[in-house]
Amino acid sequence: MNSQASLFQYILKIADNQLILGHRLSEQCSKGPFLEEDIACSNIALDLIGAANSLYIYAAAIEGENKTEDDLVFLRSERAFRNVLLVEQPNTDFAYIMCRQFLFDTYDYFFQLALQKSKDETLAAIAAKTIKESTYHLRHSGNWIIRLGDGTAESNTRLKAAFTNLWCYVEELFEQDAAELDLVAQGIAVDTQLIKSQFNSHIAEIMQTAGMEIPTGIFMQSGGKKGVHTEYLGFLLAEMQSVHRSFPGVKW
């Protein structure tokens, strides 16, 4: 892969994570446990989709094939999406939603912090804007982990189930292929191995406050970054792309 193609794929990985998680959260709009939380989740969904949008605009420019951000979102099929498996997992209940957010938000906070130092000025600028939102997202989901862990027996049990079932997607967050390592060497991509200890210590701190134990003995899944997804993504994309694909080539 030449370096433009590597950079293009790298931007897609970041953007697809933001888009797919934002989409999942946007499915919850009007279904929140109370009005203030509904507003908070819609707001976070909007932040994520907005960040994805800036990244797709940049990716389209790097690809140089006269495509738009919409082409990248609405006309790629399942195998071309590069998001991690974690973000496409369904909204099983509020504990799953917050657990998924918390794991991703923690990763994303340290990731954006590091990406601000990228030698790629556009990526660094987008990260500098995103980090403000990531900081709030991290506080929001972290507070919920503490509330749910500490709250009632039911909330504790539900949260435990969510952590047990979503933990298998944690390791993939840090996976890097040869092309990405090349970009790391050039100072463009974030070395995810370097943010892993920050991730672990934040997760441990919040989970301890919440009275939760970190799941052990979980077999780790991966594949999203290579376009091998869980079965959930196909349905998500079918819904997301349905109108756009039904009327090819028109303006919206």
């Binding site: 929140g32 446990p33 509020f94 749910l148 709250g151 009632t152 909330s155």
Partner: peptide, 12 residues
């Protein structure tokens, strides 16, 4: 469906 979430938040 949000009842247990509100209860947890209040209990905390």
């Amino acid at each position: 469906e949000g009842a247990w979430v509100r209860e947890a938040a209040n209990a905390h």
